[in-house]
Each structure stands twice: as structure tokens, then as C-alpha cells.
């Protein structure tokens, strides 16, 4: 099939503002991913196209993009999901929103990473580990409690689909809350109080308006809105 690909372009060394580049690709398979198409543009048509990519199967989180208006990983989005079955399809690709565009599809990830780092996203437990030198024990039920939020790959699909983040970049955002949740609900962790101070702040969870964009956007199918609600509940009730 044929795909008409419309890509948002911006080269700070040449362009004063962003523009749309149109590329027609023939012999596209419905099983091709959007990353396959972008690679074809870069390798066969225009080498100057800039994008991040690495694993190409949805586990590294490099290629979060706005594809036909919705956030997704390019390598996990198949052409078949974007076309009706007709012989041609139109696909529009933009950088994710709310972060400064550096070049073409590449955005500045530092503000996102700063929010991530702000929630103390690491295991805190100053008690001595078991005297027998072995692992801390954890029941299967306790382990299951935070399983969902351990899947996060920090791709930023959720945070950059969130209207509250678009409205105010100081909002810590869904990804950082997911990371906080992963530790708050880990029975072995002792840092919940410090983390709750961060996510309970003015720019924390209360900015969430539960519109579920984050949950729809997550390529790891994490129930992001639910995780945020669980953190809100801890803040409201004081009980984990």
C-alpha cells in the first residue's frame, strides 16, 4: 500500500519556524511500524530527518511521538492500526507536546527527567537487611500491589498527553507520579513520607483532572490514572 507521511520538521540551524514535510512511500506493508516508515524516509529520502530510536520493539522508550494526534511509540504503532484497509493512508507525525523541540521530532527531555528525579525515584530502606545475608522477604500479594507501575519505561507518552502539563510545565506529571507510586506501594520501602511531600505539593497529584489521556497513551498499558488516584488516596487518608 501507499502511505502519505506528513512530518513536522524544524532544523534550528536553518529554519525560523517549523514546517510540514510531505513524503510518499510505496510498497508499505500493513505490518510495518511507524518507525519503519520514518527510517525509510531518513535512509532513502532525506537523511537530515532527526528522531530518537533504539530497541525498535517498545521497551526502551526512545521514540514517543504524536501520531495522528495521539501519543504513542513509533516502533509499537503498526500501519494497520492507522489505516482503514484502503490502498492509501495518511499519517501525520509530530514531536510530543509540552517540551521544547530541539530538531524535527526530538524534544528536550531534561524538564521531564527533572520531574522524574524530584519524586526520589529510588528504593529507600535504611533498616539493616536480614542477618542471614539473604533477600528481604515479600509476599506475592505485596509484590503484586505495585507490579503495574514497575513497567514504566520513561518514554513520556503520558506526561506529554496531559492537558494539566500542557497548561503548566511545573506540574510533576503522570510519569513521575507512576514512579512515586512504584515505591510508595512497595512493602519494603520506607521513603513514602518524603515522596508524598513532593507529590502532595501544589504541583503534584492534585493537578490531575482524571481525563485519562495518560492511560490511553501508555505503551506499557499501565493504568496511570488509577495509580495517580491511589497516590491521592494515600494523601487523603494517610493509609497505604
Amino acid at each position: 500500500m501507499q502511505v502519505n507521511l506528513r512530518i513536522r520538521r524544524f532544523n534550528p540551524e536553518k529554519d525560523s519556524k517549523a514546517w510540514w514535510g510531505d513524503y510518499t512511500l510505496d510498497d508499505v506493508s500493513r505490518n510495518d511500524t511507524v518507525l519503519d516508515l520514518l527510517n525509510r524516509v531518513k535512509w532513502e529520502i532525506d537523511g537530515t530527518l532527526a528522531l530518537r530510536r533504539s530497541c525498535a520493539h517498545g521497551v526502551c522508550g526512545s521514540d514517543a511521538l504524536r501520531i495522528n494526534g495521539a501519543n504513542a511509540l513509533a516502533c509499537k504503532t503498526l500501519v494497520s492500526r492507522l489505516s482503514s484497509g484502503a490502498a492509501t493512508a495518511a499519517i501525520q507525525i509530530e514531536p510530543i507536546l509540552g517540551l521544547r523541540v530541539i530538531k524535527d521530532l526530538i524534544v528536550d527531555m531534561e524538564p521531564f527527567m527533572d520531574h522524574y528525579r524530584s519524586v526520589l525515584p529510588y528504593f529507600i530502606n535504611d533498616s539493616p537487611p536480614p542477618a542471614d545475608g539473604r533477600e528481604r522477604l515479600q509476599s506475592q500479594e505485596d509484590r503484586a500491589r505495585f507490579d503495574d507501575t514497575t513497567k514504566c519505561i520513561l518514554c513520556a507518552c503520558c506526561t506529554t498527553s496531559c492537558p494539566s502539563f500542557w497548561a503548566n510545565e511545573k506540574y510533576v506529571g503522570p510519569a513521575a507520579i507512576v514512579q512515586a507510586h512504584r515505591f510508595i506501594y512497595d512493602s519494603r520501602d520506607e521513603g513514602a513520607a518524603d515522596r508524598l511531600k513532593v507529590v502532595g505539593d501544589t504541583f503534584g497529584v492534585w493537578r490531575c483532572r482524571t481525563n485519562f489521556n495518560c492511560t490511553s497513551a501508555c505503551p506499557r498499558e499501565i493504568e496511570v490514572t488509577k495509580a495517580i488516584a491511589e497516590v491521592k488516596k494515600v494523601l487523603a487518608t494517610g493509609e497505604i
Partner: peptide
């Protein structure tokens, strides 16, 4: 492996709570 568990790595667990 035990050290990584102490760093917080969320290994799956057996019913007795071990890795």
C-alpha cells in the same frame, strides 16, 4: 542478586516470599 534485591529490585516471589 541479593545485593540488587536490597537495592529494591522487584523480583517476582515464591509463596514463601523468596525471589
Amino acid at each position: 542478586v541479593i545485593e540488587m534485591e536490597h537495592m529494591g529490585l522487584p523480583f517476582d516471589r515464591f509463596p514463601n516470599g523468596r525471589i
